[in-house]
Design a protein around this nucleic acid. Structure first.
Lengths: 243, 243
DNA sequence: TTAATAGTGTCTTTCAGACAATATTAT
DNA sequence: ATAATATTGTCTGAAAGACACTATTAA
């Protein structure tokens, strides 16, 4: 967008082929120990009746603001973490016209059912393994979002974005287990989390009672001030690396 | 982009406010041990005479293809690594109209001076610390690209994208030193690189002669098949983490 | 010969992961 | 009492980083 030809062309914006820019949000939360994604059912063609990521056109606002707005239309957000994921703009990804979608990734604590927005027919939290056959290229976007989320748990304290403001180490471990899809050793996880500077800080309180089926009352923590985890909480298994 | 209202609106693409989508490329290489970025001098308003990242409008092609094309117009590319960085779309980032820019990050081996493209007035490799006061929001894009590049050296074998097809461990170390801006311990780096499975593989050859000021001939390696480094080549210092 | 560099060896500290042990609490 | 769970302890092996050492080569 810096050549002279481009500049001249820009004198008449209508001279450009029509393109639209939207945002789509991969909003993740954990319900009943399962990783869930917020999906809406499309009411109109194309892909009518199919599930899709919530999203919409970017108005006279930043893409970040658009994503936040779209998310707010579907959920009573509050404390959500929101970050840009990737932009999808292959020709033909929307049969109607050229549409570029700036995808976002959101992490939210367990929330009540989303309010049926005025816009979307129906919005609901769906376990990610059941979120298939989505509209447009949203399967790909969701997969990329999950990859990113799984990677970010390793080296950032974002797991705390899935919990309430105060949480136990076991709750934090449940977040990792849900996102990574594998159980973690309770003892090692506990020691590891407490050893990373700034990951969590103690509130001095404990839970009011022990677990459902017994056990001592657990200490409560809140998120610390670290932005990166050092050392990182590495994901297990993986074996000989993903070549 | 899934509501009925949106769908109806899409019947007349011209009903949308005019927006444009461009790509901008943060192309990095190493010359004389210094990390350099490819910049072009703008010939037209706005920001005439200022340096900018190479880029241009996305045509009837994927954003990836557009970035590759723009890069090819400035350099004799070959073996470049190209990945999407982030999308910038704040209102007002281009004074002419609403422009969303999908930024890309490219790593290239040391190249001859870029050919003066038909498009851009002049393109040249500039040491990153001198790349300031760029046009538009390109300072921000460059900074984000550098952050990404520095992080990716840690856990991916992308440093090899900066070298020729065959390289010595010392050359690889020079890449890390240039990108991270700090020297690395030669002995430990050497052992570390060879210990990571799939990072490099030996060619069985050595350099024709030793270093400029003496020293043995070094063994030559080529890039291995690893996509991720396990364990990672962690960046030194950082101290108490970036809180 | 001298200086620079490639590559290897050794030691200490840190950390991950396996496993065990203890304490606390719901049922 | 029993079972489940929180938390801490111990041990082993991997890996990072500091440092030293040897071998090779250009000047």
């Amino acid at each position: 967008m810096q050549s002279e030809a481009d500049f001249l062309a820009s004198y008449d914006p209508r001279a450009f082929p029509a393109v639209a820019v939207t945002v789509d949000v991969v909003a993740l939360t954990i319900r009943d120990g399962r990783l869930c994604v917020l999906l809406v059912e499309r009411g109109a063609q194309p892909f009518a009746g199919r599930l899709a990521l919530p999203g919409g056109f970017v108005r006279d606002e930043s893409p970040d603001a658009a994503a936040l707005r779209e998310l707010g239309e579907e959920t009573a957000l509050a404390r959500v973490h929101l970050e840009q994921l990737k932009t999808y703009g292959d020709p033909g990804r929307d049969p109607r016209m050229r549409v570029f979608s700036v995808a976002y990734l959101a992490f939210a604590p367990s929330l009540p059912d989303p309010r049926a927005g005025s816009d979307a027919a129906a919005a609901s939290w769906i376990p990610v393994e059941q979120a298939t056959d989505l509209a447009f290229d949203h399967d790909t976007i969701l997969a990329d979002g999950l990859d990113r989320a799984r990677a970010k748990l390793e080296y950032t304290p974002l797991a705390t974005a899935f919990t309430g403001p105060e949480f136990t180490i076991a709750e934090l471990r449940a977040v990792y287990a849900a996102v990574w899809g594998e159980d973690l050793h309770a003892g090692n996880f506990h020691r590891k989390v407490l050893s990373v500077p700034g990951f969590v800080e103690s509130t001095g309180e404990t839970t009011a009672r022990g677990g459902e089926r017994g056990g001592p009352r657990a200490k409560l923590y809140r998120a610390g001030d670290a932005r990166l985890l050092h050392p990182a909480l590495l994901r297990p298994a993986r074996e000989e690396g993903i070549r």
